[in-house]
Amino acid sequence: MGTTRRRGSTRAASGTRVRRPAAHAFEYPARYALVDLDRLPLPDHLSADEARRVASTSGPVHLLTIPKSVGYEQNPLSIYYCYDSAVQGQDGELRMCIAEVTNTPWGERVMFTFQPGSDLISKPLHVSPFMDMHSNWSIHADAPGDRLYVVISVQHQTLGDYFTAALDAKLVGQTSNSLRLATFFWLMPHKVAAWIYWEALRLWLKNVKFLDHPRYLNPSYRDEALERDLKLRASCSYLQRQKVNNQRSRTTEKTAGITNHVDGKSDENMTKRWCVWRDAQWPWS
């Protein structure tokens, strides 16, 4: 018997708002595919087994991405939704997400894990010539259903929360028809690239400063990003324990002697987030 290969097609509105150093906002329509990687592996992306190994999960892996069209691919952000295996009578639970971020025009890529719901990560990639590396990414992504919502906010050391990008998508159908898929996503990557360059031109005309890639000034910027992220995770872990401790102390005085040992884990045992980079492919390398 043959395996049915299906993609869930989504029609989405992608919006971005910049508050500083110059106010700037735009919104454009986009089409994404939600792909079951066990049924339809995609070249130049993680396989389902690779994603499961990274996420330490055992169930399905769905990839949100814009498929290649006419030999060209443009994906500023793709997301792997990694589920645990379903138990009897229940659906599998979304346990981990993997972000796949590609910068334009350099063609570099970074992949990193983040917790579904919401998570905070130290910025690991120079994604825009108008933004420096001194910020964190606050990411919110729930399990996909009939609707799909992803929000990324940039928290800068001096500018504050000055940039927000959101994807609001609606499921429009499922199909395994190759011609229908090719038609649905016809020139979608090319349109996304055109929008990116058009908005960059608009920012440049607003006299927003153009920044060099950090590799020219600090070759170890990737290692430093991982160290900052480890400190960030330790800080978030501490704050979360304090919140749980406060809740417990209000519930009963009997827990007063153990409020500093909520989960038995210390910050010293915290490991670095899984995060890998891919250098630019030809002709950008």
Rank of each mutant, 00 (worst) to 15 (best):
E100V: 01
D229S: 04
D223K: 09
R52F: 06
D132G: 03
L159A: 09
L37H: 05
S138I: 14
S153T: 09
V172T: 08
L64P: 00
N245M: 12
N269P: 10
K254A: 13
R17F: 07
Q240E: 11
S118N: 12
L230R: 02
D84H: 08
T158H: 15
V192T: 02
R31L: 06
W282V: 10
L205T: 05
R215A: 05
H62E: 09
H213A: 02
D49W: 06
T252I: 08
T10K: 13
A30K: 05
K68F: 10
D36T: 04
G71N: 08
H190A: 09
W277S: 13
N245Q: 14
G8K: 10
K209I: 01
V208R: 03
F163Y: 01
D267Q: 11
L46V: 06
A165V: 02
D223P: 07
V192W: 02
Y28D: 01
L201W: 09
S178Y: 12
V244C: 01
S235L: 14
D44Y: 13
W284V: 07
F130L: 00
A225V: 00
S47Q: 04
S235W: 14
T158N: 14
I152V: 06
P214E: 05
L148H: 04
F210Q: 15
H140N: 12
T251D: 14
T175R: 05
L167T: 03
V208T: 03
E224V: 03
Y81F: 03
K209N: 07
N177R: 08
D44H: 14
A234F: 06
G173T: 11
R278E: 15
I66Y: 01
G2L: 15
R20N: 03
S220R: 13
R6G: 10
S285W: 09
P21D: 02
G15M: 04
T183A: 14
V54C: 06
W277G: 04
E224D: 06
W106C: 00
S178M: 10
E50M: 02
R147D: 15
